[in-house]
Simulated scan of single mutants.
Amino acid sequence: MKIVIVSDTHMPRKGRELPRTLQKDLLESHLIIHGGDFQTLDVYKEFARYGELIAVAGNVDSDELQSLLPKKRVFEVKGLKIGVTHGDGVGKTTEKRALEAFEEDNVDVIIFGHSHIPFLRFMKGVLLFNPGSPTDKRKLPYYSHGILMIEDTWKIEHKFYT
């Protein structure tokens, strides 16, 4: 099972279309997880056209998206319990805010966004993953998104591109 993980697309402000590398992965995916900051409902609908979409609202999403999407989600895929949140807020690092959001949920993986900084690390026994951004790399050298493969075991990794 191939799951595409993306966040912080910020379209149309930061791009007119999704990068080709991301489009190719979306076409091959069984599930899409978006960590918020689509920006508009049209961008949300574009992702949904590629297949099943699990998403949360980000801090710059339109009012329409804020009312449609939750700030936090927990779900299970093939025995892997996943939490998704955008990670925005006040105080602490984005990673710590994401971790605290799921303290009571006993998840295996937490997917978050907000900082646009690719992140892959275990904290308190939970894997935290930020896919970065496919359209707004800020001062980083590459755009990015994530791929989660689940078969007998699972692995998660970043895909970097220019």
Score class of each variant (00 low, 15 high):
N130L: 09
K124F: 07
A101D: 06
E104N: 14
F75M: 07
S29Q: 07
H86I: 11
T85H: 03
L128P: 04
L18M: 14
N130P: 13
V6K: 01
S7I: 00
L26R: 10
Y50M: 02
L140Q: 15
M11T: 03
N130S: 11
M123Q: 13
A55I: 02
G146A: 12
N130C: 11
G36F: 01
E100S: 13
I33E: 01
T9Q: 11
H114S: 08
G83Y: 06
H86W: 02
A98C: 10
K45I: 08
H34F: 05
V84S: 02
K78R: 14
F102Q: 06
I54H: 02
N59S: 08
E157C: 06
D152C: 05
Y161K: 05
N59I: 10
D61V: 04
W154R: 03
R97L: 04
S144L: 07
R97I: 04
Y50Q: 05
E104H: 12
N130W: 06
F129P: 09
S115C: 09
R20W: 05
G87H: 06
K96P: 02
K2Q: 13
P70S: 08
V74I: 15
K139Q: 01
T93M: 08
I117L: 13
F38C: 03
E52F: 04
H34E: 07
P141I: 01
K139A: 00
T135M: 04
E64R: 12
T9L: 07
K78M: 14
D88I: 00
E103I: 14
R121I: 12
V74W: 04
T94R: 07
M1V: 05
H86A: 11
K72F: 03
L127F: 08
D108A: 02
S29N: 10
Y142M: 13
P131M: 10
L148K: 00
K159R: 15
I33T: 01
R49D: 13
L140W: 00
L148P: 02
T85M: 09
V43K: 00
K78A: 14
K159S: 12
G125H: 12
L148T: 05
A48E: 15
A55N: 03
V60Y: 09
F122R: 09
I111T: 05
N106A: 15
Y50H: 13
Y143S: 13
S144V: 06
H145Q: 10
I110M: 10
K155R: 14
E100D: 15
I54V: 15
D37A: 11
V4S: 05
I156C: 07
F122C: 05
V43H: 00
A101Y: 06
L31H: 09
L99G: 06
F75A: 11
F38R: 00
F102Y: 12
G125N: 13
M123P: 04
H145I: 04
P118I: 02
A57L: 01
Y44P: 06
K71D: 07
V84K: 01
K72W: 02
I54T: 03
M1T: 12
H145V: 03
D25I: 00
V56Y: 00
P131K: 04
K124L: 12
L80C: 11
L26Q: 09
L140I: 00
G58Q: 07
L68N: 02
F122A: 07
F119D: 09
Q66L: 11
N106L: 14
